[in-house]
Amino acid sequence: MFSAKKQLDKTYKQAHRVPFDDSSKIILFSDCHRGDNSFADDFANNRNIYFHALKHYYNEGFSYCELGDGDELWENLSFESLLNAHKNVYLLMKQFHEEGRLHMIWGNHDMVYRNPNYVKKYLSTYFDPKIGEDVELFCDIKYHEGIVLQHSETGQELFLCHGHQADWWNYLFWKWSRFLVRILWKPLNVMGIADPTSPAKNYKELIKVERRTKKWIVENNNLLTIAGHTHRPRFPEPGDIAFFNDGSCVHPRSITGLEIEHGKISLIKWQIATTDDGTLKIVRVLLEGPTPLIDYKTE
Rank of each mutant, 00 (worst) to 15 (best):
N48W: 07
Q14C: 03
P129C: 12
L149D: 07
S198V: 00
R47I: 02
I255T: 06
L73D: 04
L73K: 09
C32T: 09
G278P: 05
D140E: 11
N84D: 11
K5N: 10
H33L: 08
L180C: 10
I255H: 10
R234W: 05
H86E: 13
K121T: 13
W185L: 05
P199I: 13
I207C: 13
A166F: 07
I265W: 01
F43P: 06
D21I: 06
G228I: 10
C65D: 02
Y57S: 05
E153L: 11
N189A: 15
G278L: 00
N170W: 06
K130H: 15
E75V: 11
H262N: 15
K264L: 04
G68F: 10
F173I: 05
N117L: 05
P129S: 08
D128F: 08
E72S: 04
K269C: 08
N221S: 11
E145H: 01
T275F: 04
T291M: 02
P116G: 04
C249I: 06
E72M: 09
F244C: 08
I282P: 04
L54R: 00
G263P: 00
A200N: 03
R211V: 04
M104E: 05
L82M: 03
E237N: 07
F244Q: 04
H231Y: 09
S177N: 13
A194M: 12
K5F: 12
